[in-house]
Design a binder for these strands. Structure first.
Lengths: 191, 191
DNA sequence: AGCAATTTTGAACAAACACTCAAAAAGTTA
DNA sequence: TAACTTTTTGAGTGTTTGTTCAAAATTGCT
């Protein structure tokens, strides 16, 4: 069986990076496949030939985004659990100021699609569960098993708080001070 | 000028209560006007004659929801600021367990529509700002002006955390314990 | 160069969308 | 009851939606 085939003329990953931005900012129902063809330059036929349909394209986008988040978390946490969490939270607080701020793609998916696209929402929920499990594991090794569940819960809730509160453009120092108060067990830098 | 007119055969508010449920659960883009006619029993003509268009119907729904939230907050806080906040947060944690849990309509609106329907997202953002301002005012009178900004920020972030984390169906006791730790200055009941 | 497989094209599709409107029905006053 | 106004009806508007497909172009291999 000869392996004779023509290669695609575009890079799937760079297409996904563009659809991530669309779905992330506009949501699943708020993004049309024509938005996608306009943004990527792909014709409908190529798009469907490569990615199947809208749902599968969304799943591929979400997976790529989640993988990147997980990679970043792993990298930062290698500096130590407490220090790593402080760095991650600080980064999230800083991201809030940027223009076109769009919270977190996974969180937005969970909120938007729980009722209308439960299959996609479950995907998002699973990513969030896995993230929490990773935090718990890391926290357990540095702060002990007993506290790890409640501490991991606190971290997750703090992340959700930051990501949603970001839209309000609150004072950065106030948010950081609030986090310092809430997560007093983390090794915040003295200021 | 004689006031001669036929009265509507339905109650606007009870129609709005039904559209609130639709928009709240499915979002703006995820809800079609046909969903609305199916759910309310109204024919398209009646619907448009009474509420204008989809955007205006959504605004009316959001306003009614926000008014109810504000009323409840005012009522509960009349028992005292600290006690009131504890009661509100405890209620939110309890709501998380119910089936068809759908976070908070206002928060979901902010996340879904910031990019595609900025006018509607701004409405939601304004409600959240007003809510925070009320918390700050109440906190200032019981805990002092100096702490009120950071404490109010903490409360808002805790609310966002609870409302999003609710989808994960976490252990209720863990969430409450995490809140007790984070908002240690509130008068939590001993347990 | 020539063949076979894949990819690209873009016009076209049915379904769903937000919304309209002329005619019929119903309500209010006199 | 009659006159007047508003409301209800539901088929129908044009547009946008997600998706398809036969034909053309491109690619890899011999």
């Amino acid at each position: 069986m000869a392996t004779v085939m023509a290669r695609a003329q575009f890079d799937k990953d760079s297409i996904l990076d563009k659809t991530i931005m669309l779905f992330w900012q506009q949501g699943y129902h708020g993004t049309s496949m024509q938005d996608v063809t306009a943004s990527t330059g792909l014709k409908p036929g190529s798009l469907y030939n490569s990615f199947g349909n809208k749902e599968q394209l969304f799943i591929a986008s979400l997976e790529r985004y989640a993988q990147r988040s997980a990679d970043k978390m792993k990298l930062v946490m290698s500096h130590g659990t407490g220090k790593g969490i402080v760095m991650l939270l600080t980064d999230m607080v800083a991201a809030r100021g940027k223009k076109d701020y769009a919270s977190c793609f996974i969180i937005k998916t969970q909120l938007e699609l729980t009722s209308t696209e439960p299959k996609l929402a479950k995907l998002a929920g699973d990513y969030l569960s896995r993230t929490k499990a990773q935090y718990k594991l890391a926290i357990a090794s540095e702060y002990g098993e007993a506290l790890s569940e409640v501490y991991a819960t606190s971290v997750m809730m703090a992340i959700f708080g930051i990501r949603v509160y970001g839209y309000q453009q609150p004072n950065e120092a106030d948010v950081l001070e609030s986090l310092r108060l809430s997560l007093h067990w983390l090794p915040w830098e003295n200021h």
